[in-house]
Simulated scan of single mutants.
Amino acid sequence: MKIVNIVFLIAAFSLFTSGIIAQDIIVTTAGKTMHCNITKIADDTLFFKVKLNDRMSNTFIVTSQLKEYSIGKVEELRASLDTSSFFTIKLEDGTGLTGKVRSIFESKVLFEDNNFGVITIKGETIESFAKEDKNTFYFITLIDGNEIHGKIIERKKYELDIQTETLGKVTIPLKNIKKMTEVQQGRVKDGEYWFPNPNSTRYLFSPTAIPLKKGEGYYQNAYVLANSANYGISDNFTIGGGVFLPVAVFITPKIGFKVAEKVHVGAGAILGLFPGPTTVGILFGVATYGSTEHNFTLGAGYGFVADEFIQYPMITLSGMTRVSRRIALVTENWIVPLPREEYVNGNYVETTEYYTVVSYGLRIMKERITFDIALINSKDIIQMIPIGIPYIDFVYKF
């Protein structure tokens, strides 16, 4: 089917191949230098990944053939070493460590972690690290549900001293901390931490051009019967789908790119399958101006039934603006071409007129959850229900 082919071309276009970036160096006794990723160091063997003929291959070298080697993350850590500062280190197995670097010897790091005490970390197991900035704000959620935000003054073995804007210096036992998140610059407003908008990639139904980040996703439920999920395959490509009980299933691929400081553009499709079977959907393009907190989107697309496209495009005009820590205003408006018949000179003539459907409502936000409470209206709906038809949905970001 031609429409299905177009949809899959959208998906294929957005998947870019990428290789593993070599960060480690091996020098053999024969004088050969290899850029690679060292994966394991044994007593007499060094295992690593290296790119050969455009493919990453696993191999090894015995120490008798090895002149020297260096692990990129260890060398970066050595260059920024400050035994008085705190570091966060993430290991390849997902373990997170926070504490001070005591020393670095060859490829091993002697680390004093707040929870595990003094441990030795093998350099090849380090995925990433970050040096703590004393000017960084942190948002801390306590086990009892209270929230505190401020700068870290001092880390102790069992306590954390925080300088807050409203309470001054606060000492928190580490055992009372449920979660601690680094706050991006500008997210503390009037003494409150404004978490990132958890639902910035769509309005009520239609999308913005802002894509999900790789590994991000969300589940959405509207009117209980409509269930969907979307997932970021890469920073530019999102794939999703869902069901509208009990009659339809659909898929929703989308690509999106940031082309200027406040401008994103994107394209995608909504492909639905109804009993029959009948395939219906929209191929669309969108452009968004603004940030994740305040934006406006213009969209246009052509609907289709089976392989037949509707002659005229439908248009969307949507926007959102965050007015407080937990509240945003949302509007989504559709201008849709509808066929009609006119009686002209004794004959019925098929014409097309545009019909406008508007919506307006509130978005209630938490860090990973949003609730939309809105009203949908048109020139016909307003005759029966002046305020409009209620709309509700729920989104959980994962």
Rank of each mutant, 00 (worst) to 15 (best):
N221Y: 04
G217H: 02
Y193A: 02
G241A: 06
Q220M: 05
R187S: 08
G232Q: 00
F250E: 00
L245K: 07
T252Y: 12
I255P: 01
T201S: 09
D190L: 00
G217P: 01
S200Y: 07
F257R: 07
Y203N: 02
P211G: 10
N221E: 15
Y219D: 05
F205H: 06
K213A: 10
F257C: 13
G232K: 01
I210E: 04
W194Y: 15
Y218I: 01
W194I: 07
N199M: 11
F237K: 08
F205Q: 08
K189I: 10
T238E: 05
L212G: 01
R202P: 04
L225W: 09
Q220C: 04
L225V: 12
N230C: 11
S234T: 15
I233T: 11
G191P: 05
N236V: 10
Y219K: 11
S234L: 13
G191L: 06
T208K: 09
I239C: 12
Q185H: 13
S228N: 11
I251L: 14
S206H: 12
K254W: 05
K254D: 03
I233C: 12
F250I: 15
S200N: 11
N197S: 02
P196M: 05
F205V: 10
V243D: 00
Q220L: 05
G215I: 01
A248T: 09
S206E: 12
I233A: 13
W194D: 08
N236Q: 14
L212E: 00
P198R: 01
V249C: 11
T238L: 10
Y223Q: 10
D190M: 02
G241E: 04
G232R: 00
W194M: 06
G256F: 02
